[in-house]
Each structure stands twice: as structure tokens, then as C-alpha cells.
Nucleic acid binder design. Sequence first.
DNA 1: ATGAAAGCGCTAACAC
DNA 2: GTGTTAGCGCTTTCAT
Lengths: 330, 330
Amino acid sequence: MAVGIKDVARAANVSEATVSLALNGSPLVNEQTRQRIIKIAQSMNYTPNPYARQLVLKRSGVIGLVVPSIENYYYATFVKHVNRAIRSTGYRLTISISENDPENEAKIIQEMINNRVEALLLAPVNIPNDQPDYLSLLIDSEIPTIFVTSRYLVDGFSCVMCDLFGGMKTLIYYLNNRGYNNTLLLTGPQGSYALDQRTEAALTAAKQLNLTRLDVVNLPDVTYEAVYESMEYIKTDEYDALVCVNDMMALAAYNSLTMRGLKVPQDIAIAGFDDVIFSQISPIPLTTVAQDIEGMAKTATESALSLLQAKTATTLESILPCKLVIRKST
Amino acid sequence: MAVGIKDVARAANVSEATVSLALNGSPLVNEQTRQRIIKIAQSMNYTPNPYARQLVLKRSGVIGLVVPSIENYYYATFVKHVNRAIRSTGYRLTISISENDPENEAKIIQEMINNRVEALLLAPVNIPNDQPDYLSLLIDSEIPTIFVTSRYLVDGFSCVMCDLFGGMKTLIYYLNNRGYNNTLLLTGPQGSYALDQRTEAALTAAKQLNLTRLDVVNLPDVTYEAVYESMEYIKTDEYDALVCVNDMMALAAYNSLTMRGLKVPQDIAIAGFDDVIFSQISPIPLTTVAQDIEGMAKTATESALSLLQAKTATTLESILPCKLVIRKST
DNA sequence: ATGAAAGCGCTAACAC
DNA sequence: GTGTTAGCGCTTTCAT
């Protein structure tokens, strides 16, 4: 705590100004003295007080990231990659978890604004919540904000996500091609963009392909338990393929159905979405649609940086392609 | 950005000092004026600049948390609970991920110190790395530091973890009681406290119980893949029980062995450790040893707060009990 | 090439 | 009760 620029200045027999300049690599200061000062500063274990620094610089050097959940492997991976991408930029990352609760999310956004993050990557909660109040705060604050992994359908915000619509459509086409025509889609509550896109895509594809049947079940939750329990009530013999909107749900379906003696894919095919670990750790690897999580993380980070440069308010939109990953369950 | 305390003061026709006092709930200021000021401040969307505030208060109001990985469910859960616990304390949490890399860890610690976190919760990397250099930095910085989920064997640091030794011992005793006497323990490289505790406990229990056999295999990694691949080389018919040092490894073993036609637990029993989701999402739920992750998170947070209060340097050690969770795999 | 001094936005004595 | 003022530790003109 104790050692400040003043102490270094005294020890080096120069003024505080010179120390500051030297440490910040200004060309104004003699290379000799600079080296001397740097050495002294290091030996004294001096690090500039970031709060004083930020106060005068008026830049926090911090980028914020908000995710709905950290136990969700999908977001965990996203966080990891953003963390990596930011490490080389000179900015620091501050991570907040909304626990998929809009109130929490609003509080967090307010905190991020109060703390003067310079840019914000926002993965919105996955429950119906369009046009939350904080959007105007965000606009007023002039903090460049980028929706990631999902979005609200409002103008003026940048966004980076995968082509969920395209991904699901490809999956349904592929299933049809494999001869599956009676499909059940297991999804969550309506109203979240990232989920709705998948559902709409499935429905659209079904219509285009003239599928015999594509039913949609909206579970209360997109969790393992929700699916595992629901399997009891679902007349699986009416379908030849089961599509889940994420991999964990697909795994739940797989486990539940095989427990009941069904064979996958012989009796019924199962497909997931996202391509996170859960589609790989079932006894039979699951067909799924891969989201380019690392790509989104990198793109989002780059977008944040370029918005930070841009003097004029801009909005960037990146839609990354999804990739069908065919495994043994279909 | 723009609006500062000065603006509020002007708008309310009082001095900056009064605004400051009013907003910080000092009893010195008239209740009438306080309300008036608060209202004005809100209407102006004023929030105090935290950097100016922290500069004068000399308190950052931030607690740091370092974890080796965020994709690891165990740590993700820990992070979630710390996040929750801290929310009600008035402190903010800043999360960093070391990616299980000692160099990263050292950098992060340095950053945490530079950023003046008031306390640090440190979940160390899980690879041999005793007495890292930054320990002295940490001591010099006088930042109360608490090792969580694992630790280094050094004095002067607080720590919160579960009784891994006791947990593993209980598991081996239980297995013996169920008639399993030829046990294989799958663990990772030596040198990490949290892993070594488990191994030593298993060995100790085996000796105490006079087990026919307890072999230990040190895999290069405690991951799904490491186990899944290793199953090929392991003469499973020599053992009647397989114990893994985490649940994901146990799941890998389960998947691999059942793929090879073995029945669990008839042909071989499988147990994991931690009691995270992976022990529950195998077709047959896996016996495991539960760590009280939420308890650790809460305890760690409380410890941090009390160290923050304590004017004198103290060290706290909390060892929480593990709980045997018996499921169908044994 | 270096130093003096002002000021970033806020808090806390101390005066009134 | 409220205002005045002096910093907190740093950066950055502007002089020298």
C-alpha cells in the first residue's frame, strides 16, 4: 500500500512528474534516467494506484461481461474464451453472473455503469424479458454494449451470435434426409430470442420439407431434470426423432429413454444443440449443432475494442455460422 | 459520465460536502435536505465516481477470487456461491481464471494486488507448485488471503476446504464393507494438495482395512478423456471396484466400461468424488463423496469479512466435512 | 530533459 | 446543519 510515486521520486532524486513520465514510457525523459527510475521503482515494489490513475485518466481500462449462469457449460466456455481474448488487449475483464434473473441483471448493469466499464459484453437472461428498462441507461451512459450469445430485438446495440436459425434448419433437413419424419422438439419457455430462433427454424424447416409431423413441447426449463422427468409423459413411440435445444437436455433424453429400454438411434434418434461436453459424454455420442463459442468470444472482444476506438457511435452485427456435427445418435 | 457531485450541489443549492454527507447517510444533515438532495441526485442520474471515492477512502470495496478453471463444474459452482454470498455484503467480487497455469496465476495475483483488492480467495492451480513466489508478495501486501478448495502447505495463510482425507477414507471403508477388496484408484499427477489428500487417504484406509489390493494409477490429467482412453490399458478384471478422484472421471470410466460390455456394479463398482452433476447424469447414478461447495463458499466469504474486520493479522482454518453419497454404481 | 503546479471527483476535518 | 478547504495519488500542461 504505502509506497507511492512520491516515494519513488524521492528515492530517485527526481520529481514526481519525471517518475510518471518515465514509467509511462514518455520519450521526453532521458533513457538513462528512465532506466534508473524503473529499476528503483521495481526495487521498491511500486505499482501505481489504479484509482488515482483512473481518476485523472478518466478511463477505467475495464471491460464488463455479464452471463446468466456460470454452471452452464456453454457460458463457462464463452467466459473462458473472452477472458483469454482480453488478456492480450491491456484491458481487464470483470465478470458478473445474473443467475438468469432479470432483476439481478438490471442491478449488475447499473453496477457496471457506476463502475465505468468502458465496454460491456452482455449475454442476456434466457427468459422473456424484452426491452428491459436498463437499455436506456446503457444508451445514456454511452458505454458501447454488445449483446452476445443472444440478444434483445432493439436497435442501436451491437451483437455477436451464431446463426441459430440456420443451424437448426440444417439439423432438421439432415434428419429428414436420414429418413426421420416424425420429430419432437423439446424446448423451453417462449420469449427468449436464442430459444425462439431454434423453434422457429425447426417449424420453418418442417413446413418446407413437408414433414409428417414436427411437434413442439415447451418445457418450463431447459435443464436435465426438466427433460428427464418429462420423458415419462411423452409418447415416444409416436416419434422417430427427438431434438433438444441444448446438449444437456439431449443427454437427459438419452439416459431416460435407454433406461426405458429404447435403443438409440434404432428406436428413436436424438439430437442436441450447442456441441458442448454433454453431447460427447453420453455412452453414445450425440449428434448436435455446434456453436462457434470461441469465435463469438473473439469476435465480441474485437468488436468491443473497435467500438472503443470509434469516435462515432456505431453498431456492429456479427452472425457466425453453426456447424452440424453428426454422431452416432442419429 | 458528466454529472458529478458538483453538479448535484449546484442543482440543490448546497455545498458539495452536504451532498456527500447526505448521500452517504451521515446523521449530520437535516432529513429534509437529505431527501431533497437524494431526489435531485437520482433525477440527475448521479452516481459517485468510484475511482475518486476509492482514492480518498483508501478502500476498493473489492474482493478477489481466483479459480483454475471455469469450465470445471466444481469451480463453477463454487464461483456461483461465492458470488451469491458476496452480493449481500456490500463488497464487489472480481473473478479471475488462471487456466490452471502457475504463470497465469502469478500474474493474476500481481494484478489483484495492484488493484488493491481488500481480500483474496485463492483456489490454487492443481499442479505441483509449492511455495510459489507470489506468496511473499501477498504477505507484503497485507491483503488477507484465503486458500479455498485446496491450499499450499505454508503458514500464515487462512484456508477453507473440505475434509478430503476423511471423505476418501469413508468411501474406501464403505466399499470394503460392501465387499469390495480389490480397488483401483484413478488419480492425477502428484504434487497437488487436494489430489494428494485423496490418494493418501485411500492408501491409509487400505492399510487399516487390510485390503487385498489397492492400486493407484496417476494419469497425466484428471479429465474425461484421460480416463476414457486409459481404460483400454487397464486390466479391469483384476479389480472389483474403481475409484476416481472426481465425478467426471468416474463417468468416463462408466461409459467406457459399459461400452465394453461390463455391468456396473455387478462386474465392477465405480465411485467418483465431489458430487457434481456428472455423478448424476450417467445412466446409473454414481456413488460419490460430496464436497460442501456452498458451505465452503459461504465460509470463505465470512472468513474474508472477518479478516477484513480484524485489525490484527489472523489466520483462520476451516475444514468442512465431506459426505458419502451412495448411489447405484456400488 | 526535468520540475512546479493544477486538477481529476470525492470525503472529512474543521469552521461557522 | 451547512460551507470551506485540504488532500487522496496520479498525470499533464507549462515553465525552466
